[in-house]
Amino acid sequence: ERVRARYDYEAQNEDELSFKKGDIITVLEKDDGWWKGRNGKEGLFPSNYVEELE
């Protein structure tokens, strides 16, 4: 599954994923509120910062 970033997100910890608004992220795992994904790097990000691609 792929999602698009709705906002910029700056990683707060080294296991998190940074991205810019409009970036496409491949979702690897979904957990409550935090998803694991890849966009060149791999890490956790808040699920409310992304939207599913149509």
Rank of each mutant, 00 (worst) to 15 (best):
F19N: 01
W35K: 00
L44T: 11
G33F: 15
N48Y: 13
R6P: 04
A5S: 04
E29G: 12
V3E: 03
E52N: 12
N13R: 12
W35C: 04
R2S: 09
D8K: 05
L53Y: 14
S47N: 07
N48S: 15
S18T: 11
Y7Q: 11
S47R: 10
T26D: 09
E54F: 13
T26C: 11
D32Y: 08
D8R: 01
L44D: 04
Y49G: 04
Y9N: 04
A5E: 02
E14S: 12
D8E: 06
N39E: 04
F19Q: 01
E52D: 13
V27K: 02
S47K: 11
K21M: 11
V3S: 03
G40H: 12
N13Q: 08
I24K: 03
R38E: 08
K21I: 11
I25A: 03
W35G: 00
K30I: 06
K30H: 06
K30L: 05
A11H: 01
W35I: 07
N48L: 10
S47C: 13
V3K: 05
S18P: 04
K30A: 06
D23G: 03
E42G: 05
D15F: 15
E54P: 13
E10D: 13
V3G: 04
A5F: 00
L53K: 05
Y7H: 09
Y9W: 07
G43W: 00
L17S: 02
D23S: 07
K30Q: 07
E29M: 12
F19L: 08
V3M: 13
K21P: 01
P46M: 07
R4N: 04
Y49W: 08
D8A: 09
I25E: 03
W35Y: 08
G40P: 04
P46C: 08
I24D: 01
G40Q: 10
K20I: 07
P46K: 07
G40L: 09
N39A: 12
R6C: 13
T26L: 13
W34F: 10
G43I: 00
I25H: 02
W35L: 04
Y49N: 05
D8S: 10
D31L: 15
F19W: 00
F19S: 01
N48I: 12
N39G: 09
E16V: 00
K21H: 07
A5D: 01
K30Y: 07
L28G: 03
K41G: 11
D32T: 11
D15H: 14
P46F: 05
E1I: 15
K20E: 06
A5Q: 02
G40N: 10
E52V: 13
G40D: 12
E16M: 05
V27L: 09
K41H: 11
R2V: 12
W35R: 00
V27H: 01
I24V: 10
L44S: 10
Y9I: 02
Y7A: 12
N39M: 15
P46L: 09
E1L: 15
Q12P: 04
L28P: 00
V3W: 15
Y7N: 07
F45D: 01
T26H: 10
V27N: 01
I24S: 03
E54C: 13
Q12Y: 05
R4K: 10
R6K: 15
E54N: 13
F45N: 01
G43N: 01
V50P: 02
L17A: 03
E52Y: 12
N39T: 12
D23R: 03
N39D: 05
W35P: 00
N13E: 08
E51A: 06
G22N: 07
Q12S: 09
D23M: 07
W34L: 07
D31R: 15
G33H: 15
L53N: 06
V27F: 02
E52T: 13
R38L: 09
E51Y: 07
W35A: 01
A11M: 04
K36G: 00
E42C: 09
N39L: 15
E10K: 11
V50Q: 02
W34C: 11
N39F: 15
V50A: 07
E42T: 14
E52G: 12
L44K: 12
D32I: 10
K20S: 09
D8Y: 04
D15W: 15
W34P: 01
G22F: 04
E14L: 09
Q12R: 13
P46R: 07
G43F: 00
D23P: 02
E51N: 05
D8T: 08
E16Y: 08
K36L: 15
G43L: 00
E29A: 14
G37H: 01
S18F: 03
D8I: 02
R4C: 08
K36N: 05
F45I: 05
F19K: 00
D23E: 10
Y49Q: 06
S47Y: 10
E1A: 12
I25Q: 02
